[in-house]
Amino acid sequence: MNQEVVETSIEDAEEAGRPFLPNHVVEEMGVIFLVTGIIMIIASLLRPEEVGLPHIFFAGAHEMADVVAPWFAGLVILLVVIFLLALPFLDRSEERHPFKRLLFIIIMLGIILVWLVFTILGF
């Protein structure tokens, strides 16, 4: 019965939450050690140049530049950045639930899909 209130108000969510000091800070320290630990373990086991992971992030842009035209790839990237910058001013409703902002979810999915397709083609 209390459920609904907890779901909608930040004050109640905070009330049910966890103290920042020291509980949360201690856990954050744990996460920091975990993250740096993972980086250090991978770094000591694998030479970065042998894995070639970095290429994946830019393979899509390379492929688009190859298949269409370099300036077109530049334009698309510029438009995506402009879209991201403008997003809070385009999507002005109070709704935050993803299913209630379908238009913007679809646009974002479209961007991700195009990126994935070109990445797969380019790899």
Binding site: A13, E14, G17, R18, P19, F20, T36
Partner: peptide
């Protein structure tokens, strides 16, 4: 002020950690 602060329950979800992870990686 910090002592009074509580982290809301929904924000304890690990996906809320990603900004912090980005920051740690940037410091490294």
């Amino acid at each position: 002020e910090t002592k009074q602060k509580k982290v809301p329950k929904h924000a304890l979800n690990p996906v809320y950690c990603l900004g912090g992870v980005t920051f740690v990686a940037l410091v490294v």
